[in-house]
Simulated assay, not measured.
Amino acid sequence: MLAAGASAASAAPTGIYADFANCPTDNPDVASCLVSDTTSGSIKLGNQDVPITKRIRLQGGVTVNPDTFETGFVNAKNGATLSRTALKVPGGLTGLITPAPSWSRPLRSLFYAAVNSVNDVTATAELVGPVQFSFGNLLNGEGTAIELPLRVKLDNPFLGDRCYIGSSSSPVRLRLTNGTTAPPAGVTPISGTPGELGAVEDITTLTGQSLVDNTFSAPKASGCGGLFSLVVNPIVDLKIGLPAKPGASVARLNGDAKLAPAASVATSN
């Protein structure tokens, strides 16, 4: 009987709550479950613009301070807080790197072998710290709604499997708003779109929102080129324009979000 009860409790939510399967409803502090899908837009780091052509999902649980009503964020189950969505970098490897005459013969051979096999380079955003979430700012269209500390992984056989922009100690920190940004002096603010508030039974929906940021910085690349990283990292930096100061980079994330009571999600299976 105990085993049957545990199995039922862990069953996935169904129906309109199916998308909230990774909500940490077993955490008693979680009041609501959040799913936010970015389906278009772009992320520009320095000089390099990467269009968003696949869905990027952010999900987890939302807590509420009973005294201040401020909201917090709890990571999703199964390491699914931010989907690892690989996006194609326009131009691929030849768009990021130009071989120099000073390159050694082994390095040039590796470069051309990679280009001949696959020129594609993908960029994947990965979380390297806690997510901050303000439901009030999201509804009011002002201030930071979602803060994401990220590193961006660049993938290609030539770049190796440890080519990153950003790290846990020096992240690309997006402070996304659906209102108007407050960039450094001399940088023009940009505005997002609050979207349309709606409901499906007890699920709050926000459709057609646009979250933006042009206040973040981007550090130098690291680990690109494996054994040749001392040579390759500076070339990647030069091409992309890294490190990039606040105002040089821009994020525009367009999509929809929804929020469901954790109790409804937990009992929907």
Rank of each mutant, 00 (worst) to 15 (best):
I190K: 15
S109Q: 13
D67K: 10
E126A: 05
N119F: 05
F73T: 00
T122W: 14
A263D: 07
P106V: 10
G61L: 09
L148G: 01
T193M: 06
T188A: 15
A221H: 07
V172M: 02
R57D: 00
T193H: 05
L127G: 09
E142Q: 13
T122L: 14
P261M: 05
F73C: 01
Y17Q: 02
L150R: 07
L87Y: 06
D155T: 15
Q48K: 15
S7H: 09
G166P: 00
V200D: 15
L58P: 04
L211A: 06
L174V: 01
A266T: 04
T181G: 13
A31G: 03
K44N: 05
P219Y: 08
V265D: 01
A221C: 04
E70T: 10
L211Q: 04
S7A: 14
C23K: 13
T267A: 10
N116K: 14
T81F: 12
L96C: 12
D155W: 04
A18C: 05
D37H: 02
A221Q: 05
S117I: 03
P51Q: 05
A11H: 07
A9G: 12
D161L: 11
A199D: 03
L58T: 06
L159F: 14
P99W: 13
A221I: 03
S102F: 01
D120W: 03
S102R: 09
N65P: 10
T63V: 03
P28T: 02
R108I: 10
I203T: 12
G143H: 11
T14C: 03
P51T: 08
F216E: 01
S249Y: 09
A31D: 03
R252E: 12
A123Y: 10
A248K: 09
G198N: 08
G92L: 04
T14Q: 14
P101M: 10
V74G: 01
L206A: 02
A262P: 06
N178K: 06
V50I: 14
T81R: 12
A11G: 12
S42H: 15
